[in-house]
């Protein structure tokens, strides 16, 4: 317990600092209202709007832990959203629509996994294939338009309220907790880390690296499908061109902010979803602060750069060195009577 808390401490501190910063520009940031059976306020918006990236980050964490990367998650969101909207508009119920969408995500993951684990294509290239071609598939399903459907149980997944909180919040929190538990309560976490650090040594120790790799990409596809369902349910329509566009990069960023190395190995799902919340806090903060939109990306890039610099082990080393020499200075001076 204590150990895992210490693992996410940097991310928690970053998030707290960021929230303080946003509050400077937008004083009501932390205010939460309760009206009509629902909580509302900027923080609730962050939790809800951060759902897609948080979900993608969960899957991406596992993929990155195996020393891979999944560039196709944004596209898988579009495909699964299109499948769900198609199912709904063809008169199927919400249940079948969810099952079909999740199934589409799993199939996409299986495709990626086979390319990486069996064919042996580098992950960045293998998933790039689906990233670029997948939007075409989604457009074929929606016939190139925004496929809309009426509010109903499916829309509830995107904009419904449960126990005063938006439903997407429950979906990403439960997914993250579920995946983290699955990894740490079973041996999966260890085996995934081990193939990420040294696939060849792990295979020689009897770890079934091929099956695990495929499973990890399928998990990523599943998380992307859930994100796609939320995005589609939220606007009650599947937008094949724009759903999840560039979100794979935000997801990778969330994992990096969460401190999981792109070289694979040790991972923390909790730190990655905190990373997603950090990114969403930046996004929402920018919108609330009311700067002209030309500055959005500059501000975001600046903040992300700062966070990564502060978290960089190199810089921490320099910082210790600096502090050390500062502390030593007074001792060296004749007046230094402290020691």
């Amino acid at each position: 317990m204590k150990r895992s808390f210490r693992r996410v401490l940097p991310q928690l501190l970053t998030l707290a600092a960021l929230m303080a910063l946003v509050t400077l520009f937008f004083p009501q940031f932390l205010s939460i209202d309760y009206a009509g059976g629902r909580l509302s306020g900027p923080v609730i918006d962050v939790l809800k709007r951060g759902a897609p990236v948080a979900l993608l980050a969960v899957g991406m964490t596992l993929v990155i832990a195996t020393r891979g990367i999944d560039l196709s998650v944004g596209t898988i969101m579009a495909i699964s959203g299109a499948v769900a909207a198609w199912a709904l508009s063809s008169g199927w119920g919400a249940g079948p629509a969810v099952i079909l969408a999740v199934g589409a995500g799993l199939v996409c993951g299986l495709w990626n996994g086979c390319l990486v684990a069996i064919v042996g294509i580098q992950p960045i290239v293998a998933t790039l294939i689906l990233m670029t071609s997948g939007r075409g598939i989604a457009q074929l399903i929606t016939e190139g338009r925004i496929l809309t459907f009426d509010a109903g149980p499916f829309a509830w997944l995107g904009s419904g309220i449960l126990l005063g909180l938006p439903v997407p919040v429950f979906i990403w929190v439960l997914t993250a907790v579920g995946v983290a538990a699955l990894m740490r309560r079973t041996a999966l976490g260890l085996l995934v880390e081990s193939i990420g650090i040294n696939r060849s040594a792990s295979a020689l120790a009897g770890v079934n690296a091929t099956v695990l790799l495929i499973a990890v990409y399928m998990a990523s596809g599943l998380c992307a499908a859930l994100a796609g369902i939320i995005a589609t349910a939220d606007i009650r329509g599947a937008d094949a061109n724009n759903a999840g566009l560039w979100l794979e990069l935000d997801a990778i960023l969330a994992v990096v902010i969460g401190g999981t190395s792109l070289l694979g190995g040790r991972f923390s799902v909790a730190a990655s979803v905190l990373g997603a919340m950090i990114i969403q806090t930046i996004d929402t903060g920018i919108l609330l602060a009311g700067f002209p939109s030309e500055y959005n990306l500059v501000i975001k890039a600046g903040l992300v750069l700062m966070i990564l610099l502060i978290q960089s082990p190199n810089l921490v080393g320099h910082w210790h060195f600096l502090r050390h020499s500062l502390r030593r200075d007074p001792d060296a001076s004749p007046r230094g009577a402290k020691s």
Partner: peptide, 23 residues
């Protein structure tokens, strides 16, 4: 009073409008 990009998409429009309503 407020002007922000929603990238021509529904998701963008919804998210930015939410922040307008908050702000």
């Amino acid at each position: 009073v407020r002007s922000q990009t929603g990238d021509f998409t529904r998701t963008g429009g919804k998210e930015v409008m939410e922040s307008f309503l908050q702000a």
